[in-house]
Design a protein around this nucleic acid. Structure first.
Lengths: 200, 200
DNA sequence: CATTAAACGGACCGCGCGGTCAACTTGGTA
DNA sequence: TACCAAGTTGACCGCGCGGTCCGTTTAATG
């Protein structure tokens, strides 16, 4: 029974927000090796404050990942309510790639992907993806042998591919999303040579 | 005019081979952060010996990358000589993904991708890819709007996608290569929303 | 064999990292 | 306004890294 703890102080709330933003920027610029000291400097706080809010660097990473996955989760729910099956799939993949184009933080998953709070956020998101994918398959706008897990895995590929091109157009990922979407259509699909995976 | 230097000693040749193999294993297991000390231990030599053969850690990375790219380059040349256009494209992509499935060292490119020797090896390889792709396009087994650079970029995606699945079947990448190959066929291709990139 | 330059090994160096701590400051409350 | 727990700070710690250096070993040569 957690007694009603007194609410956090205003400066603590502000600093937490500043830290998450600074950390996301710093990670995007320098990868996972961005140092806690630099993150603190960018947020305009002392290094000790970082560790007051996030016990370890991995906890900080986990908080960023969780936020981003929940963002996509909510976007997916909106699309399920508003868009038709084909458009929802297309828009969701576009939203996911767009988020990553703005700031590529995918490598953070490698550091904190197995933490429980991150896994929970991922499950929320994959649940939504499953619903989008099932609807698309049932309406015949997606090939029959593709699962929600497949789409979850394919989701990040366009940015990854475009990321190899230095000074690429910021829209290059759309090109490879186009190729993948063509590969996901039911017309002309050839049987896939390996079974659909499941996560954990 | 480099005067004929005396050939390297037998133990130096042997140690260089041992080091490259040990480094590839160590990088595959621990990523770019594999330490030079561990690599030396695995090769059964002292740490100083590593730096005698490779002035910096990046030079070691570059040597590994160069070897692997040249391997694919030669495989591509074989396929150009022996296989028909569609099979050559299919087989080349399979070979590239197979190499990476065995040992994923793609992240090394991020550390040494801009070194001249690595760039030269990459150019040799992309030259071969261009020939494979041009032939496939001309014979109508590849959609018209796809370039050699596109294929080079798409080449690594199947492993990347499958890499997100812990304990995945070692053949899972074939599934996503299948999706991409379907997306590369001329039949039913929709116009791509961004122009083909060029590398440097 | 004797000779010698090439190759080897591992103690050593400076650095920057993630994380700790105790002295200090400050927002909220009665 | 007086109080105090919550919050902040930056000097500090131990560690493991990439890279250096030099005394020792060894493969090649005539």
């Amino acid at each position: 029974m957690t007694a009603a703890a007194r609410p956090p102080r205003a400066d603590a709330v502000r600093n937490r927000r500043l830290l998450l933003a600074a950390a996301a920027d710093e990670f995007a610029e320098h990868g996972l090796d961005a140092s806690v000291a630099d993150i603190a400097r960018r947020a305009g706080v002392g290094k000790g404050t970082v560790f007051r809010h996030f016990a370890t660097k991995d906890d900080l990473v986990a908080a960023i990942l969780t936020d981003r996955m929940d963002e996509l989760h909510h976007r997916g729910e909106e699309l399920l309510a508003a868009a038709d099956a084909a458009a929802a799939l297309h828009e969701f993949l576009t939203a996911a790639a767009g988020q990553r184009q703005e700031r590529d933080l995918s490598f953070l998953a490698e550091a904190a992907g197995s933490m429980p709070e991150v896994a929970a956020a991922r499950d929320r998101m994959t649940g939504t993806i499953d619903r989008i994918v099932d609807r698309a398959r049932e309406e015949g706008v997606l090939r029959a042998d593709i699962t929600g897990t497949d789409v979850f895995l394919l989701m990040c590929a366009p940015n990854y591919i475009a990321g190899y091109v230095p000074d690429a157009s910021p829209d290059l990922w759309r090109r490879y999303l186009g190729v993948i979407l063509d590969g996901l259509r039911p017309e002309g699909a050839r049987p896939l040579p390996a079974e659909a995976p499941t996560l954990a």
